[in-house]
Design a protein around this nucleic acid. Structure first.
Length: 502
RNA sequence: GGCCCAUUCGUCUAGUGGUUAGGACAGCGGCUUUUCAAGCCGUUAACGGGAGUUCGAUUCUCCCAUGGGCUACCA
């Protein structure tokens, strides 16, 4: 039975790198009809916060990564928070102590730090000198009675070469002589990461440990512990790192690193999932668009790369734009509504919404036709309010000069506006669709013998006040007859004013 | 400093002992067009270096260089 896990530590917001690791663990489990587990590694009580745990769990849910066992869900190996499993570590620690595989170290933090500093200064590898490794029972007793606090160190066997075959990297070997007797617990009831992780992975019957490359150096420590207890060493797969543009490990300084920040910026979970999956994995062909369900079928560890991948925001934007365009209008609309509310353009009224400036009610179809204006144009949902400001504001602010199309004489532009005005007038309010508008407008432009631009450009500017926007037909239809006609009038006035001044 | 890992277009990557080294994003150019976006067409751009093995290496081996990770009483 394949059992994988993501073991985040709630000492910060849900990190993109953790999310990607979670995704790969999830995909590998799903692909192999296995079980995906979430385990919260909060042995560091000082730095762990509930707030961060919530953020992580919410992030996973947002991405659609469901865990089979874990916080909230429970499971046969509950509990899934290390802070709630503390009692289960102590016997294992005792077991090691009995075998003299673990010994108390009375060196203080300060002493160790000083020792390390000296070593670094003299260009020596920073290593634990082993002062407490061979203390006699009486020496220990003396230390203890003098009130010195101690930690528990694991005794590393010397002169051994450890080897594992990593599913991504192939054979990895480690010389135990380069390892320190590391601290596995602050005390018998306060285990540290490298120890707790081994016990938990064993108790939770984790078959495959899929994690970031930064954990490669933890492999030998964990193997040694597995051996000490007689546990079967799990399978390993170490994922390449996600990097900043300067090729260092993805960090806050250079990127938004917290997953949920991407949500607030208007990225879709589908896009993030697709993008993250392709950071270090590929299907072996040219295909790039995958839903989570499709990835569950396609994923394989064999096709994971070895080298780190830069987090390319532009590519993410592209994926996001693709998913925005591919989404159904009702769904997209519901994704966009919070942003329109946040910007203050619309307010919620029970089940429906209204425009905040004039209190006008917006039907579901109206809302959808507004959103449709930008569906093909935005890369992030966040962009939607700014782009649509002209739909919600009363008075447009723009320079009259913007109404001029390609140095056309002002008189011609005025004429163009006139044609636009009369064309719009001829269409009844209930036939005010983009198609009818386009037909009518183009017909009249043609019979007037004018160029499209002389009419359509100023019309569009009159309606939006913008140099770039959707077509005047779409915009007019969304604005409605009354408002679009008014705006043409306003534009004419602007032009009048402008030329009158000259 | 020590240990470990990596190296194909700017970026994500495919790929093979003999390929015009392929795709995608970004860029650039064009078509379309009232603008933007989209779409379509085209285009710039890569096998880190040196030995060796071989008839032939981007591909296999070794060395070097470069980059990265770890080196906590964090995880």
């Amino acid at each position: 039975m394949i059992r994988t896990r993501i073991a985040p530590s709630p000492t910060g917001y849900f990190h993109i790198g953790t999310a990607r690791t979670a995704l790969f663990n999830y995909l590998f489990a799903k692909k192999n009809n296995g079980v995906f587990i979430v385990r919260i590694e909060d042995t560091d009580i000082e730095r762990s916060k509930k707030e961060f745990e919530d953020d992580i769990l919410e992030g996973l849910k947002w991405l659609g990564i469901q865990w089979d066992e874990g916080p909230g869900t429970g499971g046969e190996c509950a509990p899934y928070r290390q802070s709630e499993r503390m009692s289960s570590y102590t016997p294992f620690l005792r077991q090691l102590a009995d075998k003299d595989l673990v010994y108390p170290c009375y060196c203080s933090k300060e002493e160790l730090e000083q020792e390390r500093e000296m070593q670094v200064l003299s260009k020596q590898p920073p290593r634990y000198s082993g002062t407490c490794a061979d203390l006699s029972a009486s020496q220990r007793a003396a230390m203890k009675s003098s009130g010195k606090s101690s930690t528990l160190r694991f005794r590393i066997p010397r002169n051994r070469v450890l080897s594992v075959v990593d599913h991504i990297r192939g054979e990895l070997t480690f010389d135990t002589n380069t390892l320190d007797d590391f601290i596995i617990a602050k005390d018998f009831d306060a285990p540290l990461y490298n120890f707790a992780v081994v016990i938990d992975d064993y108790q939770m019957k984790i078959s495959h440990i899929i994690r970031g490359e930064e954990h490669i150096s933890n492999i030998p420590k964990q193997i040694l512990l597995d051996e000490a207890f007689g546990f079967t060493v799990p399978e390993f797969a170490h994922l390449p790192l996600i990097l900043n543009p300067d090729r260092t490990k993805l960090s806050k300084r250079q990127n938004k690193v917290s997953l949920l920040e991407y949500r607030t910026e208007g990225y879709l979970p589908q896009a993030l999932v697709n993008f993250m999956a392709l950071l270090g994995w590929n299907p072996g062909n040219d295909r790039e668009l995958f839903t989570l369900e499709e990835l569950e079928k396609e994923f394989s560890l064999e096709r994971v790369n070895k080298s780190g991948a830069i987090f390319d925001l532009q590519k993410l934007e592209w994926f996001n734009a693709m998913y925005i365009r591919g989404m159904s209008l009702p769904e997209l609309t519901s994704w966009c509504i919070p942003y329109l509310i946040e910007e203050g353009y619309i307010v919620r009224e029970g089940e429906s919404y209204s425009v905040s400036t004039d209190g006008r009610r917006l039907s579901q179809t109206e809302l959808e036709s507004i959103v449709r204006l930008e569906q093909e144009r935005i890369h992030r949902l966040r962009e939607i309010p700014h782009r649509l400001s002209y739909v919600f504001t009363q008075e447009l602010e723009y320079d009259a000069a913007l109404l001029i199309w390609k140095k056309t004489p002002v008189e011609e532009i005025k004429q163009g506006l006139l044609i636009a005005y009369s064309s719009l007038q001829k269409i009844s309010a209930d036939e005010y669709s983009p198609e009818n508008l386009e037909d009518q407008l183009k017909k009249e432009i043609q019979s007037a013998g004018m160029k499209n631009g002389v009419v359509l450009w100023p019309l569009r500017v009159a309606l939006t006040g913008l140099a770039a926007s959707p077509s005047p037909f779409e915009v007019a239809s969304v604005l409605g007859k009354k408002r679009s006609v008014e705006r043409i009038k306003d534009a004419e006035k602007k032009l009048q004013f402008e030329t009158g001044e000259k």
